[in-house]
Amino acid sequence: MSDNDFEAIFGRVPVMAILRGMGVERSAALSTTAWDLGIDSVEVPLQTDEDDRALREVVRLGGERGKLVGAGTIISVEQVAAAQRAGAAYLVSPGLDATVVRAAQAAGIPILPGVATPSEVQLALSLGLTWLKAFPASWLGAGWFRHIRGPFPQARFVATGGIDASNAAEFLDAGVKVVAVGSALEDPSQLDRLAALLAR
């Protein structure tokens, strides 16, 4: 797999789920909520042993439904291997580390690095990446994406950090391909609005 596979990974659905530090049971429950809602992509950040167990369980559940699961907060080469052992189909990083990117590429697993500046976007593109995670999106603001698309029209952005049903549409309207939500999946008042986003 390669960077180009993110088009298929996200399944043309403009919302993904991030299940950070939720443990095995909550991660399993919320991944099921996400899939039932129509969200194809679920990411489990990998920082602790409990996260590893949660990732493995969500990967197992995803396998039963034909869904690919990613591992997030990948900041070292060692985590690339650990995520693969747990069954992750793709990786997500909070920042851009060329060493980690190259390790993922060598392992044949797509990686979505975090960027927040034009220099980082340019470096990511030079590494052969076109799908990028913009983080923290709420701090960057939707306007950032309108400006950055000028010099980098080939970049495709996943916006993460501080996004829920109340502001997701603003980022999508600014040209973001995918927005990431987390705790919003536990808020019944947001589920209908998230479902409406999936119909865009």
Rank of each mutant, 00 (worst) to 15 (best):
L172H: 12
L112N: 06
L132G: 11
A174H: 11
L172W: 13
L198S: 08
L172C: 11
A199D: 13
R146T: 13
F171E: 05
A195I: 06
G114I: 06
V58E: 00
R65Y: 11
S189R: 15
I9N: 05
A196D: 13
E64D: 14
A17T: 01
A17I: 01
A155P: 02
I75W: 03
T130G: 15
L30H: 03
F135V: 06
V178Q: 10
S183K: 08
K133I: 00
Y90D: 03
S93V: 13
A86M: 05
G175W: 11
L19Y: 02
L30V: 04
F135E: 02
P110A: 08
F135H: 06
G141W: 09
V58M: 03
L197W: 10
R149N: 13
L30M: 14
G162Y: 08
F152N: 06
E57T: 14
A116N: 11
A88D: 03
N4H: 14
P188W: 08
V92S: 11
E50L: 10
L197S: 03
A82F: 00
I74S: 07
D49M: 11
L127M: 14
V181A: 02
R26C: 03
A124K: 03
G70Q: 05
A71P: 01
R193L: 13
A82H: 10
A116H: 10
Q79R: 15
L123G: 00
T160H: 01
L172F: 12
A142N: 00
S138D: 15
S138V: 15
H147C: 07
S119W: 00
A98Y: 01
P14L: 11
P188S: 09
L37P: 06
G182M: 10
P188F: 06
P118M: 03
I148M: 15
W144A: 12
L129T: 12
L172T: 12
E186C: 07
T33Y: 01
L129Y: 12
P94R: 13
A71W: 01
A71Q: 01
A98M: 01
M16G: 04
P45R: 09
P14S: 10
R149Q: 14
A124I: 04
D97E: 15
S119Q: 09
A169H: 08
V15S: 09
G87L: 02
P118S: 05
F145L: 12
E25H: 10
A83L: 07
Q154N: 05
P113W: 09
T99R: 14
A180H: 01
S93Y: 11
S41D: 00
M22A: 11
G162V: 04
G162D: 08
A137M: 04
I148Q: 14
I18K: 00
L96A: 05
V158W: 03
G38E: 04
